[in-house]
Simulated assay, not measured.
Amino acid sequence: MSESKHSDNEQYEQNPLIDQLLALLRGGQAHVTFDDAVRDFPADLRGVVPENLSHSAWQVLEHLRIAQRDILNFSAPPTGGYQPMQWPDDYWPKSSTPPGLSAWEQSIAAVRKDREHFEALLLKPGVDLYKPFRWGEGQNLLREALLIADHNAYHLGEFVVLRRLLGIWNP
């Protein structure tokens, strides 16, 4: 075990694998961070679907939020248990534009909050990353952490492409 600093500077004793999972979930090592991908995205371009692409930035952001929430709910089911969603209808917003002025920021805040909730699962004392969930088909917390990181990295790459095509990528 090694000692690390948590983002709020609270000391905690940590497994090196969990340290790496947290870094992977937060991004910025091999790819752009979530915050960099969504930062200062002009409101008038959030609903634009560039030629030869399938989705707007709004749809990608919402898909990322919805999928991450689904993985969180699968990993730590709310009261009443996990309720599976229908692919693809439940995972992608129908409209290319945000439904209101505050929707963009609300979605960003939800992505951050859900990631923090997932990170809290990893930081629980005595957490067993390898123990299969009682529900599902053998999935465990390690698999779900890697799934969130992989899925988010893919869609953050889409954000970079969208921004480049829209002429608003300033790394």
Results as ranks from 00 to 15, higher is better:
H155N: 11
H63W: 05
W92F: 14
Y82N: 01
L61T: 04
L122M: 03
K113G: 09
A153Q: 12
F41D: 00
L122N: 04
R65C: 10
E144D: 09
D90R: 12
A57I: 04
G27H: 01
R26P: 01
A30I: 01
P125C: 01
L142S: 11
A149P: 00
N52K: 14
A67C: 10
G100R: 13
R65Q: 13
P132I: 00
K124P: 01
D44T: 02
R26Y: 00
K113D: 15
L156I: 13
L156F: 07
M85E: 03
L72Y: 07
L165Q: 11
F159Q: 03
D70M: 10
P78H: 12
F159W: 06
E62C: 10
A109I: 10
G47Y: 02
I148P: 02
V32F: 09
T97I: 07
R112A: 09
R143P: 02
Q83H: 08
L64E: 02
F34P: 05
I71Q: 02
L22V: 00
I18T: 02
G81P: 12
Y130E: 15
D70Q: 11
L61P: 00
D40T: 12
D114A: 11
W92E: 09
P98V: 01
L122G: 03
E119P: 08
A23G: 10
M85G: 04
G136L: 02
L64S: 08
L142W: 06
V32N: 05
G100M: 08
V161I: 13
L129D: 04
A57T: 01
S107A: 15
S95F: 03
T33N: 01
P84G: 13
S54M: 15
N73D: 15
F133R: 01
L25I: 11
D40E: 11
Q29Y: 07
A23E: 13
L61S: 02
T97E: 15
L147K: 04
V48Y: 00
E116M: 08
Q20Y: 10
V38P: 03
V160T: 08
V111P: 13
